[in-house]
Amino acid sequence: MVCPYSFDVPGGVQFHVRDLAEHFIAEGHEVSVLAPADEGTPLPDYVQGTGGAIPVRYNGSVARLAFGPVTARRVGRWIERGNFDVVHIHEPVTPSTSLLALWAVEGPVVATFHTSNLRSRAMQASYPVLRPSLEKINGRIAVSEDARRTVTTHLGGDAVVIPNGVYVARFAEAPVRPEWQGTPEAPTIAFLGRIDEPRKGLPVLSRALPLIQRAVPGVRVLVAGHGDVDAARERLSPESAAACTFLGGVSDADKASLLASVDLYLAPHTGGESFGIVLAEAMSAGAPVLASDLPAFVRVLDGGAAGATFRNEDAEDLARQAVRLLQDPAARADLAARGRKRADIFDWSVVAAQVMAVYETVTAGAPVVRPASEPASMWSRWTRGRGAEGAS
């Protein structure tokens, strides 16, 4: 498997690659993961780092990517030594280890597309250069219908939708933490996400919180995620700031316990989401979910049957829906039960079996993976294309 994003910084694609790899290893398969990582970064035995990455802004976030001739040589050596039956490239058009691996490989190739961005000028501009490489992909996977539409819109062809996976039992069996539990007078809300990234929706929650506090004065908000806490507090009124506890980055185990402990999980993301893995995690833990009505979120929540929604970026509607749920324990319990049942379709035992079926299809009667005969020509084609683009 190839991950384009650095393993130094946690992210949805990195977690997907890690969990899928570990599931297959537990089943007895031999798995090697290639990804950027700074020297000295602790990595699992199955991950090989390609060296440091640089931050690049893309799709409302910051991605850490590795690209260039040194990384390309490391990718080529990894493929040459691997003797792989299949190479599974995540985000194959991302200019990092993934695109370099696509250039460098011949043989059975599966690609997973995670991004949802129907107006990507970068994809539109790069398609003529990338088209010969994209033809090497034998099996295409999209993690959601939104990601599939991005593929069909910008890259042509189609992809089978296989969602992100969750270890449902790990969340369902997570111990409750008393300090994160609410009471009828002081219920707790959880928010998970990078607090410096506006599209994760913390500013929307900040605008809604005073309205929630008027109806539920004792409400507490537990914010888990990396970022500048002082800057986040400055955007809050003193009363709202007093109601918020910033936990910083939390471990996987603490995240599961947090979701298992709170009265409500809130996902006020404003865009750029192709799936919404944290919704599946919250449902697995038994937390009732309230999320913005992004199409990807609505699909994860089974059209709203497994979780409540509010109008995207509408702080007043968020507050109305949150107050309704916080004041109605029976409604929360019903929502949690339906969410927990829905979560089972995202369990890795289900998702990984679907991925393996794609592997089996593309490898049937095919030779093993080998290095491409002319990987350097692909590098030249890219650099010529970029130069021509700059000249125009």
Rank of each mutant, 00 (worst) to 15 (best):
I189W: 11
L211T: 02
A333R: 13
G82E: 08
H88D: 10
A231E: 10
A242N: 00
A190W: 12
D302H: 12
V204W: 11
L301E: 04
E80R: 15
A337N: 00
G49H: 02
V47K: 01
S61E: 10
G385M: 02
F84G: 00
R332D: 02
R73N: 02
A224S: 03
R320S: 06
A172H: 07
A53S: 14
T50Y: 05
R384K: 13
L134P: 01
S96R: 11
P288F: 07
P210E: 05
V13E: 14
P367V: 07
D38A: 15
S261F: 12
A147C: 09
H88Y: 12
D347R: 07
V2S: 00
P128I: 12
E313S: 15
P4T: 10
A186N: 06
S120G: 06
T183K: 03
P198W: 13
L264I: 02
G51I: 07
V75H: 08
A319W: 06
D196K: 11
G227R: 12
L266Q: 03
P268S: 07
R57D: 14
P69V: 12
V262P: 01
L20A: 11
L102E: 04
M123Y: 15
A364P: 00
H269D: 15
R342K: 10
I89K: 00
A125V: 14
S377C: 01
S116R: 11
A35V: 05
G307D: 01
S116C: 10
V298S: 00
A287E: 04
V87C: 13
Q327N: 13
D230T: 14
T115W: 09
A66I: 10
S237G: 13
T245C: 04
L192H: 04
G193T: 06
P367T: 03
P203K: 13
V17W: 10
R340H: 14
R342D: 00
R73C: 01
V160T: 13
V151S: 03
E27Y: 05
S98V: 09
D230A: 15
T363P: 01
P375F: 09
A232S: 09
I79C: 07
A169K: 13
R338V: 07
E234W: 06
S377E: 15
V362T: 05
R81T: 10
P203R: 12
M356H: 14
L192R: 02
T383N: 09
V31K: 08
